[in-house]
Every structure is written in C-alpha cells, then in structure tokens.
C-alpha cells in the first residue's frame, strides 16, 4: 500500500511542435488530495487526459496503481480511474437515474453491486430527492455532486476532477470540498485541478504547472514557507489618493483590491514608521495565491 498510486516520469506531450506538457515527473500517494494548479493552458487538462488514458504520451512513463501504461492496456487503466471533466458532467436531457444506469452499463457493474454502490453514494452526498428528475432541472451544485457519484460508481481507487467547482456557488463549493475530504478519508485518492486558491489550501500536496512544466510540488505549508522566507505584510492606504511607496523598497508589492501584499527587501523600523503615516501595516500569513503569483512571476523574470 505504500507504493504511489500515480507515478509519472519524464512525461511529455507534444502537438506538432508545441509541447503541451514538458518533461514532468511526480508521484501521487494513496489517499491523498493532490491539487494540480496552473493558469489556463499550463498543461493541466492535457496531463489529466494522459493519466485517464484519453491521450497517448509522447514521451515518458506513467504508472497507475502499479500498472504501466502501454498501448492496448488503456481499458485496464480506465477501470481504475474515475474522471469528471471540466466541460461535461452529466447528460442534461435525461434523468439522474438514467445517467447512473448508463454509467453502470459502461463499466459493466452487475445489478446488485450497482444498486449497492448507488445507495452508498447517494447516502454519501446525502441526496434524498427524486432520482427521476431531469438533470437540466438541478441546481449547479447538486449536479456536480451527482456527477461525482457517477464517476465513482465503479469504485475506482483514484478519481480525477478537472475544475469540479467552476461556476458553482460558494456555499455549494464548500460542501463539495467536504465531500472530497471525506473521500480521501475513506482511502480514495483525489486528483483535482482548480482555479480557486482558497480551495487549494484543502489539498495535501500541490503541484504547480506553468507553460507545460512542473515548477513546484509540495504541501501548501511547505510551499508557503519555502517561497516566503521573510514576513509578509498587508498594507492598506489610510485614505484615498495617497502616493504609493517607492517600489524599490520591496521584494513584492502586489495589489489585492485596495490593499497590497508586500515583502520588504530589507525590513527596518524606520521604513515602517515612514509608511505608517499613510498606511496601515499588518503582518499576515502568506496565502497560496501569494505563492502562486510569486512562483509564476519568479519564473517569468
């Protein structure tokens, strides 16, 4: 059980001359929530497609649950993964039950097992409505939860969620993440991509992609610690139209709404005092967003 469930070595995916994924290596442990972050076009979805057996790798090796990916073995892999894509989740025009029946047939679940799984999963998401409701009549959050159930129906050890909460209301998002944490506690591995940095905090480990390359991989806490050696401050102007401080004083000076997140190059009380005339200065813990910006910008420089 100690072996990683996903093991990727020197993975590259090339379309023509364009590398969508370039020499990426990482491992995902069993029962872990693995966050996969990056801007649009950073290679997240391409990587997931390879891991689900939808796209062949140009180079590199991929192991899923100790099974090495080779041509002709896609179906073996496909039984071991669940996949919830970003674009499509459930068929709108048919009912919840029909969507589930359909998925069960695709995976060849026998009737008893299917019914048992269905009951388990519906209890898991605490769904008590009528299963004959058409999917198009469901609110977005519920739809995502049902979609999660559908992709878990065949009880795969690992599930890939591509932006599962995009466009879902904040409250429903929080609920969805509760479900994800629950899943991980029961031993499932969750591989998730997201745009929401507050969500990423829930991950056990985070991989950060930029332009097809993996630029960071660690726990959120370690990432923050590694990226920010000094103290980060929240700087808030006391009134409108105050002149901005000299940027050369800072390592980082990033606007966040009307506030700024700042890291001093050299932290001295005199500078602080000088700034305190126009600004409120509070020490804060760095968020993943700070880490994200710093890492991506650091590379850009």
């Amino acid at each position: 059980m100690n072996q990683p469930i996903v093991s990727v070595k020197n993975l590259s995916v090339r379309f023509g001359t364009f590398y969508a994924v370039k020499n990426v290596s990482f491992q995902v442990d069993r029962g872990e929530i693995f966050g996969f972050l990056g801007a649009n076009g950073a290679g997240k979805t391409t990587t997931i497609r390879v891991l689900c057996g939808l796209l062949p790798a140009t180079e590199g090796t991929v192991f899923i649950d100790n099974e090495r990916f080779t041509r002709g073995k896609e179906n073996l892999i496909k039984q071991k993964v669940g996949y919830m894509s970003q674009k499509f989740t459930l068929y709108d025009g048919i009912s919840i039950a029909e969507n589930m029946d359909f998925a069960a047939a695709l995976h060849h679940l026998d009737k008893k097992r299917y019914e048992q799984r269905r009951t388990e999963l519906l209890r898991f998401i605490d769904f008590r409505e009528d299963l004959s409701l058409l999917v198009r009549d469901l609110p977005g959050g519920i739809k995502q939860e049902i979609a999660l159930c559908v992709s878990l129906l065949h009880d795969p050890p690992i599930i890939f969620l591509d932006e599962p909460t995009a466009g879902v209301a904040p409250k429903a998002r929080a609920r969805f993440w509760d479900l994800i944490r629950h899943l991980a506690q029961t031993g499932k591995t969750v591989f998730v991509t997201t745009h929401y940095m507050d969500e990423a905090e829930n991950c056990d480990r985070i991989a950060l992609m930029r332009a097809g390359e993996l630029i960071a991989l660690d726990t959120p806490a370690a990432l923050k610690k590694k990226t920010f050696q000094g103290q980060l401050y929240l700087i808030t102007p006391k009134r409108g139209n105050v002149p901005l401080p000299d940027k050369s004083l800072f390592e980082i000076f990033e606007p966040y709404g009307r506030h700024y997140h700042a890291l001093f190059k050299k932290e001295t009380t005199s500078i602080q005092k000088q700034l305190a005339e126009n600004f409120n200065i509070t020490p804060i813990a760095p968020s993943l967003e700070d880490v994200f910006i710093r890492l991506v910008e650091g590379k850009d420089r």
């Binding site: 496909k78 039984q79 894509s85 499509f88 998925a103």
Partner: peptide, 13 residues
Amino acid sequence: EQGSMEMLLSTPI
C-alpha cells in the same frame, strides 16, 4: 461539442 465524448472515452467503452 459538449465534451461528453471525452467522458465516454474515460470509461472502458
């Protein structure tokens, strides 16, 4: 267009 082909293909079908 709606991306369901991808979902289908992630299953053993």
